[in-house]
């Protein structure tokens, strides 16, 4: 049987800002329907990689294919269309401050679906309930805590029920229980929507609980140092840095 087309494919990608190369010569493919986490030390370029994957920045070289189509060479119109096909949450939530929570979640529905207003409200309420924010419909983002904003951002990303979701540190700043709820929500969505998740995260517990795969980036080599099932990597990785990263040891103290 022919192998299914990977949902995200990265070839020889080099990215950075201005003159400064953050990551170089990355190549990997992510298959449909899994949960892939990207981790690495702070400042190693996880958010940068994510922002390139979703087409916000143009890479120095290399190509990024989403569902078999290049987002690097796409025309602005095609890019808009591709971007509509996936949901993204940002490290800071990135809700629109001039809209209430409900309006934030309704916005993509308003712009891209033919739903009537009551339908939109119902759909948006359902998404907010999923992230346990029911009852906060008319709050403005400024009136919410950081974790609540993050969850609302998640609800907005889910609004169009996309097949591909990118999360930038969804659980940072959440308490352990909410964070565990979030993990359950992600697993539930994976089963229900058959969606693919690409998640940047530092939460080891959540990685071991939900991830099928993890890519570990390294600042020094500016590339991927490990790629595979996080549980296996933790036990069997040949790279001591990776092993200690996943086991929460710090090499500096145990040498």
């Amino acid at each position: 049987m022919e192998k299914a087309l990977p949902i995200v494919e990265v070839c020889n990608l080099t990215i950075g800002y201005g003159e400064n190369i953050v990551l170089k010569d990355l190549s990997f493919a992510i298959d449909r329907g899994g949960i892939c986490t990207i981790l690495g030390g702070s400042g190693c370029g996880k958010s940068t990689l994510l922002k390139h994957l979703i087409g916000l920045y143009r890479p120095f070289s290399g190509d990024i294919m989403i569902q078999g189509r290049s987002i690097v060479t796409a025309t602005p119109k095609e890019k808009d269309l591709m971007m509509r096909g996936f949901g993204v949450t940002y490290q800071s939530g990135a809700l629109f401050g001039s809209l209430t929570l409900l309006e934030n979640v309704m916005l993509p529905l308003e712009e891209f679906t033919a739903m009537t207003r009551p339908q939109r409200i119902a759909a948006a309420r359902e998404k907010l309930a999923m992230v346990e924010l029911d009852g906060f419909d008319n709050y403005y983002p400024a009136e919410l805590s950081g974790g609540m904003r993050k969850r609302a951002g998640l609800a907005r990303a889910l609004a169009l029920e996309p097949e591909l979701l990118f999360f930038d540190e969804p659980s940072a700043g959440l308490d352990p229980l909410t964070s565990a709820d979030l993990d359950r929500l992600i697993l539930h969505l994976k089963d229900k929507l058959g969606a693919t998740f690409i998640i940047v995260t530092h939460e080891l517990d959540s990685i071991f609980a939900i991830a099928d795969r993890c890519l570990i980036l390294d600042k020094r080599t500016k590339g991927v140092v490990a790629d595979g099932d996080p549980r296996e990597l933790r036990e069997k990785s040949a790279n001591p840095w990776v092993k200690s990263f996943l086991n929460r040891n710090n090499l500096r103290y145990c040498n």
Partner: peptide, 18 residues
């Protein structure tokens, strides 16, 4: 400018909104 700092501009663009 504040929306840019808060990644709201990025969010708009990835939602396919101009």
């Amino acid at each position: 400018g504040t929306m840019k700092v808060g990644e709201e501009l990025d969010a708009l663009r990835t939602m396919g909104l101009n």
